[in-house]
Design a protein around this nucleic acid. Structure first.
Length: 106
DNA sequence: CCCATGACTGATT
DNA sequence: TAATCAGCCATGG
């Protein structure tokens, strides 16, 4: 089975689209559900690539790291928190959310 | 082809 | 709770 980069990104995007509104998933969780266990970094790479792609159909803001915080640099982290906050996800003063409460339970 | 980097993770200290 | 570290692999120089 040949895996092109495009197919890898596609399966990742499809998985991210399954995250319900008001929920968050970790990079590792997306990797597992996409059939790529242990490949969390690839999920981050795929989402990063999304920027140039500018596909509004992929809810990138619902993907955060295993510590419950945004992994985006600088101002983008605030944008992500703002978008999630508008969906009902609550962040504490350290910019973290409770995965037990808001994590996507698949 | 080699090397460094990155929107990461889980275990260990 | 926080800092370290090895493992991960596509991407770009």
């Amino acid at each position: 089975m040949k895996r092109t980069t495009d197919s890898l990104y596609s399966v990742i995007y499809r998985t991210v689209k399954r995250i319900p509104k008001g929920r968050v998933a970790t990079y590792g969780q997306i990797a597992r559900l996409a059939g790529l266990p242990g490949q969390a970094r690839l999920v981050g790479y795929a989402l990063h690539n999304l920027r140039g792609h500018r596909d509004p159909h992929v809810p990138w803001q619902r993907v955060i790291n295993a510590r419950g915080e945004s992994s985006l640099p600088g101002l983008d982290a605030e944008l992500q928190r703002q978008l999630l906050k508008s969906e009902g996800v609550i962040f504490d003063r350290n910019g973290r959310t409770d995965l037990l409460q808001f994590g996507w339970k698949k």
